[in-house]
Design a protein around this nucleic acid. Sequence first.
RNA 1: UGGGGAAUAGUGUAACGGUAGCACGACUGACUCUGGAUCAGUUAGUCAAGGUUCGAAUCCUUGUUCCCCAGCCA
Length: 573
Amino acid sequence: MNGNYNKKNSDREERLDFIRAIVAEDNRSGKWGGRVITRFPPEPNGYLHIGHAKSICLNFSIAAENKDGRCHLRFDDTNPCKEELEYVESIMADVRWLGWDWGEHLYYASDYFEQMYEYAVRLIKAGKAYVCDLTGEQIRQYRGTLTEQGKNSPYRDRSIEENLDLFERMRAGEFPDGSRTLRAKIDMASANLNMRDPVMYRILHASHHRTGDKWCIYPMYDWAHGLEDSVEGITHSICTLEFENHRPLYDWFLDQLGVHHPRQIEFARLNLSYTVMSKRKLLQLVQRGLVNGWDDPRMPTISGMRRRGYSPAAIREFCRLIGVNKFNSTVDIALLEHCVRQDLNRNSPRVMAVLRPLKVVIDNYPQDKVEQLEAINNPEDPAAGTRLVPFSRELYIERDDFMEEPPKKFYRLAPGREVRLRYAYFVTCKEAVKNPDGEIIELHCNYDPATRGGDAPDGRKVKSTLHWVSAPHSLSAQVRLYDHLFTKENPDDVANDADFTSNLDQNSLKVINNCRIEPSQANAEPLSRYQFERLGYFCVDPDSTADRLIFNRTVTLRDTWAKIQKAQHKQKT
RNA sequence: UGGGGAAUAGUGUAACGGUAGCACGACUGACUCUGGAUCAGUUAGUCAAGGUUCGAAUCCUUGUUCCCCAGCCA
């Protein structure tokens, strides 16, 4: 009994996912001599997104958790037609921004091309590979189907000498694109289509972003990837589920060659509600101008999230919380938002900003008087200190913070009601001034000088505290409010003839000009993150300048009043 | 009618034959100079049916459902 409890407790502490369990077991058995070497192997053909972050965090943290463990960053650049330097650079920047360090271990598959070629020659010499003259269309026909086995290529039994000669001439550029391939000689009857004599090399007279025109034959993924892992001494080659069917091939190539043979382990890729994750779809959004580029703050790309104001720590925590498994699932985007709020609550300085200003005149406050009031920078972090905020006779408050006829549970300002202005005074609303259309354009209030700083010496309470800015001191700013990109939890849930873009939320971006923000923000650094009190977390857009401040809303604060309002609305209808 | 994977609260994930737990969400309440944060609580689950066992999410059998595979993409 006792032993049982102990076992359970220690299990509870470890909490190993199935991949970490494999690594731990390998360490215990000494399978890899105690080494743990993982890798993140992106193809440089697009921008990284939060799904990649899951893989990045998995690979780098497993390395970090083990003594002398390391994780390589390797560009899997085996297809010159799709890949570009621009992507290489953005990928490195994103991985670094996420907080990971590959040290000396930056690699390119293209650096191994010569070695791969030699390995291919070895396979040919062993009678395990052959040059095939079938066209792409013919190869497909010969491959058979899911339920019918394939048939052997007529070129399958060429002599080793002829294969060697042909392969050399393929490399030398004697043949046009698509005219021949090098294929592994495995089994055209295999139930696994990947084993039906897979193509190892294709002819591509294309310029590669790193090797230029040195090569006109390029290795296929299945052939190349295991070799890359092997050459680098990778121990655990972690990839996504769709490669499960490829593992027998991965193993076959390395076994035939008799070289270092990492273990491939597959896990489920990340899906997130209210967004899409496929490179193809993200590319479509960008190319069709449905978003403003790869780093549009609504995009689930790392660069988009950075611009939106998500912190690396929040993303890492999210990736830790979602765990890792072998079945497809869709994580609620609310969990990501939770992680962001949790981190930003603890770490971002507070500031007062008014998104939709309503002018307030404190009638009994002296005309030209200005006071500097002390405000706390971060109540969660005393070390963040305090700052001074100017207060004067004319202020702005949030339009939403006043109602002429307040409904139940609306605690904010209303005619005759007293509230606190944060860090300032208690004020009571005396009058709401309207324009001819009946819109409220200005409030007149009185303040209680005895409540300076926000406390009433007589101990009286107010139901709410409002944020505010001094009208003459405040700065103008543009604020961009973001919402989920799609209206549906699953954007692919569409009517028969429509595509996923029909589920795009037309209101996912709202731009508000003429917001007012406290003067401490005059020189806010691009990409710095703040909490606008009572509103949410905001991030200075990279396009922001001292003359034209621009903030992106990262995520709102949890908003109890909004929930009550929603419920009240529902009741009415 | 082929092969390979996988099914635990609304969502995500633990439990590896021994009390089905955690997080997010939702809902109560307390507290609060942010209707934030914090704190306390409620809610709700083993795909199905059999079997083995003192005991099954876990082992066995059968079934159901979902995902992946027929690129000279990765």
